[in-house]
Design a binder for these strands. Structure first.
Length: 201
DNA sequence: CTACCGATTGACT
DNA sequence: GTCAATCGGTAGA
């Protein structure tokens, strides 16, 4: 079974939750079947003091979910696509963790159908790609991730993530607050969307 | 109402 | 490596 992570998981400091989300599973169930993947890359968006955060300038209709309680999905659209976040912390604090990449584990054919791509590396490597592969759109904004229905995060059985395997880098694509080291990813995963410049080998 | 723009992607050199 | 398509959200007239 893929038991959903409890409410408590989402209530810590957003950076801690971001690190803890690595190695967990993203699970999606629709009438077409189940898809699941291992989270390998995330980014933390801090509260009001973070200039890259959508909630930086206060609450609007678009970002209202981020101001709600932790454990809900925040789905926003950008560049004609969707991105998925997990909201953290109690109500009123607009923090969230962007899921940037997952390693496909189950439902690969369904992902291929939705993505119209066959290469596994092209299915869910990138925040908008994984939303397409998992059939996630704005209708899931505000969804309760602790229910264990339709969309949730689960513990991967018997797998623990060694902190030494977690790499830290700057966030991708942000202009304001670009220098902050708030992107966390599995150092050894091929399914990470972007890598910092590699030293010459 | 219009104008601008982004937590991106995919096609192309 | 470079670059333009894409469209909903937001701000401003």
């Amino acid at each position: 079974m893929k038991e959903p992570l409890s409410h408590d998981f989402y209530f810590g400091d957003v950076e801690d939750v971001a690190r803890a989300m690595l190695g967990k599973q993203l699970v999606r169930v629709t009438a077409n079947g189940m898809t699941a993947g291992r989270i390998v890359e995330v980014e933390a968006y801090l509260s009001r003091q973070d200039p890259a955060n959508h909630g930086h300038r206060g609450q609007t209709r678009r970002n209202a979910t981020m101001f709600g309680t932790g454990g809900h999905a925040y789905v926003y659209s950008i560049h004609a696509r969707y991105c998925l976040n997990a909201v953290t912390e109690p109500e009123g604090v607009p923090c969230a963790v962007l899921i940037r990449a997952v390693e496909p584990l189950e439902g690969l054919d369904l992902m291929r159908e939705r993505r119209r791509r066959t290469n596994v590396l092209d299915l869910a490597r990138g925040p908008a790609r994984l939303c397409e592969a998992f059939g996630i759109d704005r209708s899931l904004d505000g969804w309760d991730l602790t229910r264990g229905e339709e969309l949730w995060l689960a513990d991967e059985d018997g797998t623990t993530v060694n902190a030494a395997n977690i790499a830290v880098a700057q966030r991708v694509g942000v202009s304001a607050g670009a220098d902050l080291p708030l992107r966390f990813f599995m150092a050894d995963s091929r399914f990470v969307s972007k890598r910092p410049r590699q030293p010459k080998s």
